[in-house]
Write a protein that binds this DNA or RNA. Structure first.
Lengths: 356, 356
DNA sequence: CTGTTAGCGCGTTCAT
DNA sequence: ATGAACGCGCTAACAG
């Protein structure tokens, strides 16, 4: 590994001159520049960013700490982050916490030590401490998705309460009166906000909420599956299910299918977040969707603005609007449906259908 | 930002003593250790990895350069990489090249400058140069997925040729004789290998290949869509389509649906790679799948072994076996199907079906 | 236009 | 068991 000094020696100049050639700083005669560049090429010299960062106090590296990149929502957010970062000359270290505070607690100090220039942070739980940890080190953070009470921090998130309100309103308009909600972990702000939106809609419709039509659990397909089985085995059965994320919805749909229930004939289902269109052959699930890519992108832009000091107003809260996408997984409840046997749908030939 | 010297001063010791406390190296009296630790906590001192790395020549950071994290196959690979890395105390910088050599050429030098300890590398094209670039700097690389001719390099990849052979054999056994293949970019090794597997199967079955039943194109849904339209408009129409990846398959299915063709009644479809089970409500597509998570994991383990010098045998080529998963998207070709009108499937009620 | 000096924060080497 | 000196590779500040 040649260093700047090796290059300097070989080119018969001082190290700083090489530095100036590399960074296009200060004045260099065309001739010297040429000679230095030749030596750089010859030696295949690669400047060491570590040393540079040690002096400049910037690494041009961002940390993205999220729950699980495997969820398409987060995949897309990540892509938004990486694109925005890369465009500005930054790299991104990605860390999965799996909603696990212990993992999160392991990552944060390491990233701090690596002197990342900023954090894009999806807190495993909505508590202040981890954010404080970062801020105390003077490192900019933008929180993603989840509100953190009791901290002054930039946040970019979706309109959870409003989005779920809108979704439940839609179901109410279809005539549904018994609607269950499968939400995420109770400690996560979006879970509670989505439940709040749900409750507001029901309340406005003058519907007394049954306490046990709200289910909290992990944001996983397994959870959606289990809770749905639970719901099915405990009458009175709701006519519609809403879920707080895509995985839960998929689990719910699987449980319904196994129970021989058709969607939407026997049960309407709708979800918060869905699957990217490139991944779905035949869009089916009605959903409120957040602009995942933009969430990553805008959060990164804000973070970079903080890092470069372009912005120093008080903390921003950017709430991205959701969009209700109506597909085929919900039906009007007073409509008469020809009832077959419970497993009658098995007789239908396994064929592809066109979207409405 | 306090430095090791601030801590030392405050604790009344030399910087090196603080260093020893942090790294548990050398001898420290219990008392001194306690005092130093107290000051560390008080000052919220965070060691600077940059300085440490500058001396130690290791950053405990890996670079993962892939095409597009948004493809579930790569998402899963990435998760495997991150898990394996994190377990060994390494972080991962993720970069998307979108199969674009220019982007790739931008990332590589930056990552080299950042002194990453190793590369997990999915080449945008199967050419030697980028790998050489990395290796010349003495940085370990493990190539993922795509063979790179003319270089000595570790590689972890799926059994493309064999997998596609198996898939086409399956279709031949079902009685198909006209099978088209929608493959990836011609410059990418897996595209050609999958075509080779396809050709071997046809050849063995004594089938004369029509030249234009092989289609190369990007690994995207858009490409699958276009090529399928092309195929449909140019008789003789094949009875089965195989695709070289999941996105292409989805595009193909969408084009078929738009054309009013049912799968598998009017056209059998099968793909290389599918969608993770957590993402699919009702698995439908017959596919040859690669163990994506393991691919990431094993590649990372190999890379780490190279980095730590545990392994110094000649380059390894780890070929991971694929698995044929038969679902409902292919039918036997001599079976009689009741023919409705071309768009007759639109009449079928939009209902969920149980998997066979 | 080019060079000298010094120091970013840490850990290795050698003393004490 | 603890410390002093030095240098990792680079660049800011100040000459000249």
């Amino acid at each position: 590994m040649p260093t700047i000094r090796d290059v300097a020696r070989r080119a018969g100049v001082a190290p700083i001159t090489v530095s100036r050639v590399i960074n296009n700083s200060g004045y260099i005669s065309a001739e010297t520049r040429k000679r230095v560049e030749a030596v750089i090429a010859e030696l295949q010299y690669v400047p060491n960013s570590l040393a540079r960062s040690l002096r400049s106090n910037q690494t041009h590296t961002l940390a993205l700490v999220l729950t699980d990149i495997t969820n398409p929502f987060w995949t897309t957010v990540t892509r938004g982050v990486e694109d925005a970062a890369s465009q500005a000359g930054y790299n991104v270290i990605v860390c999965n916490t799996d909603e696990n505070e212990a993992k999160q607690a392991k990552y944060l100090p390491v990233l701090l030590q690596k002197q990342v220039d900023g954090f894009l942070f999806v807190p495993a739980r909505s508590v202040a401490e981890p954010v404080n940890l970062i801020q105390k080190q003077g490192v900019p953070v933008v929180v993603l998705d989840r509100r953190v009470p009791g901290v002054e921090v930039d946040i970019v998130r979706g309109a959870s309460e409003r989005g779920m309100y809108q979704l439940v309103r839609y179901l109410l308009d279809l005539g549904h009166r018994r609607i269950a909600i499968l939400s995420g972990p109770e400690q996560v702000s979006v879970s509670k906000e989505r439940v709040a939106g749900y409750q507001r809609a029901l309340h406005e419709a003058g519907i007394d909420q049954v306490a046990d039509s709200v289910y909290y659990g992990p944001f996983t397909q397994a959870s959606g599956y289990e809770k749905t089985q639970q719901i099915l085995s405990a009458p009175p059965r709701p006519t519609a299910l809403v879920t707080s994320n895509n995985f839960i919805a998929i689990g719910a749909l699987q449980a319904l299918r196994e129970a021989g229930l058709r969607v939407p004939e026997d049960m309407s289902v709708a979800s918060f977040d869905d699957l990217p269109p490139e991944l779905v052959i035949e869009p089916f699930l009605t959903a409120v969707v957040q602009p995942a890519y933009q969430m990553g992108q805008r959060a990164t832009e804000l973070l970079l603005a903080r890092i470069t000091g372009q912005v120093d107003d008080p903390c921003q809260e950017i709430v991205l609007p959701t969009e209700l996408i109506i597909r085929r997984s919900c039906r009007a409840v007073n409509e008469v449906v020809p009832q077959k046997s419970a497993v009658g749908h098995r007789d239908v030939p396994p064929t592809f259908h066109t979207e409405t």
